[in-house]
Design a protein around this nucleic acid. Sequence first.
DNA 1: CTATTACCTATTGACATAGTAGGTAAATGA
DNA 2: TCATTTACCTACTATGTCAATAGGTAATAG
Lengths: 136, 136
Amino acid sequence: MISTRGRYAIRVMIDLAENDNGSYIPLKDIAARQEISKKYLEIIVKDMVAGGLLTGASGKGGGYKLCRRPEDYTIGEIIELMEGSLATVACLADGALPCPRAAACETLPLWEEYDKLTHDFFYSKRLSDLVSRREE
Amino acid sequence: MISTRGRYAIRVMIDLAENDNGSYIPLKDIAARQEISKKYLEIIVKDMVAGGLLTGASGKGGGYKLCRRPEDYTIGEIIELMEGSLATVACLADGALPCPRAAACETLPLWEEYDKLTHDFFYSKRLSDLVSRREE
DNA sequence: CTATTACCTATTGACATAGTAGGTAAATGA
DNA sequence: TCATTTACCTACTATGTCAATAGGTAATAG
């Protein structure tokens, strides 16, 4: 299951893309539009900055801004950054210990196939695919 | 993420299919072959019986048995029964409250598309696809 | 120098996960 | 009949994650 961390992160990025006017957008505005607790978003957005998805600026006139064009973000990288991994079973997660039963495991190929499907799906989607431009 | 409940359930069913000799197979044997705590498997297997995946028989000579042919089980129904839902986001889960933002939600179509992908994938896989018959 | 904003650390309640512990009930076969 | 084997049942627990909240400090613009 994809948690609020990944889902909210995507919504923040869509919001930033749709409301882009060249300057920084305060989190207060994003939280209000998206109807998400600003306090909780702070935690999420901090990690997004750390992960290189956004840039932030403090002080008056500060806020957040995308640091690439919407078509240069894949949804996969956003989810993977925020959720830690895009893996669908524990044994295929990024920092997982190698499973001693792997060679004999009759279910592993199933999980690998699903994992690839998931990976391909989300890496084929771009932020721009989810943005409906309002301005013209 | 698919938890041990779903994953162990599938392994139990593969084990039953591969070691089928017409009679009941004790959980002790399955647990030993699969290297899973028997105590923990008891909980899982009980739900599998309740869900109509297996039949159980008490007493000496008892154990568990598939109640259909391996080709008559889909992996999807096994996971869905054991995990409660195959949904990949909370708002698409079986007992989820209707989301007031659904109509305006710009991410919902993404989750719906992924959900369909997941559903189609696991319902196209059958237990028989995972079984390597040893006897001839 | 004040208002605004990001950024930081810590804490919380609720819930799920992955088990363990210790029994009772049912069936068999010697 | 009775011991053994098995399923089946209730309860408990340790650990971790999720989704926040609380209460600050630092930076910046006007």
